[in-house]
């Protein structure tokens, strides 16, 4: 499976003596949007961390865009794969302006034309140029999440890892960010691996999903199965009922 954007095989991740992800294998195709769902502690965020290099204690195979990932920090890897975190209040440096924050990855990787790249990126994520020299505390939650997405896209990666990108936001702002993610993926042909516990969000943004529990993948299904409520495993159905009941009353 060399054509897969993300290829995981027998991935096992531990923190010290505790193993949190057990023998997980799946592929995410180029340009696909794949969701990992499950309750807290099911290991879904840990998979993203292992891929991005934040959880270095893993065994198995991780390869992104055909290149195997090593256990040490990898500069070239950063150019193909970036991560967006859950909480825009925590993920931006409070004493760096939007401009500094966006230009930093370019400086690290020695890429020129920073001024125009920052300008273009702000426009791409729907932020006005006047926000360029503001600090994170001068922005709203939705604007911050736009900056966080812009930062992740500065190196023009092919793959984005999204860790609950909208769960800290209000419904109306969530809609804006989801639209933005959908637009960016369409325009740039990005691959998404998204962690969420919100099944309706999966239905809106993703093509396939993996349901996780206790560090194992319980079920991998297409989004159509989710839409029509035809998930096969009992746990997936339970999860579906817990959030599906919400929808029936709408």
């Amino acid at each position: 499976m060399t054509d897969a954007a993300i290829h995981l095989e027998h991935l096992t991740v531990s923190y010290g003596d505790t193993t949190v992800v057990h023998d997980v294998s799946f592929d995410v195709a180029e340009g696909e949007s794949f969701a990992l769902v499950g309750e807290s502690g099911s290991g879904k965020s840990t998979i993203l961390k292992a891929i991005s290099g934040l959880a270095p204690e893993w065994t198995g195979t991780i390869s992104v865009e055909g290149k195997a990932r090593g256990h040490s920090p990898d500069r070239a890897f950063a150019e193909t794969c970036q991560m967006v975190f859950q909480d825009p209040y925590g993920s931006l440096h409070p004493r760096k302006t939007v401009d500094t924050c966006l230009a930093e990855p370019l400086a690290i990787h020695g890429i020129g034309g920073r001024d125009s790249r920052v300008k273009d990126m702000l426009a791409a994520v729907g932020l006005d140029q006047r926000f360029r020299f503001r600090f994170p505390h001068q922005l709203s939650g939705g604007q911050r999440q736009r900056v966080a997405i812009a930062r992740a896209l500065m190196l023009e990666p092919r793959v984005l890892l999204l860790d609950e990108p909208t769960s800290a936001l209000d419904v109306s702002v969530q809609a804006e960010i989801l639209n933005l993610l959908k637009k960016l993926r369409r325009e740039q042909g990005l691959t998404y691996l998204m962690v969420t516990h919100n099944l309706p969000v999966v239905s809106f943004l993703c093509d396939r999903l993996a349901v996780m529990r206790h560090g194992r993948v319980v079920e991998i299904a297409g989004v159509d199965a989710l839409k029509s409520g035809q998930l096969s495993q009992p746990y997936s159905r339970e999860l579906y009922a817990a959030s599906g009941g919400t929808l029936q009353s709408a």
Binding site: S203, G229, L247
Partner: peptide, 10 residues
């Protein structure tokens, strides 16, 4: 607000 919420069958 109601419209902005993604639905299960989106």
């Amino acid at each position: 607000l109601i419209a902005a919420m993604p639905r299960m069958n989106e």
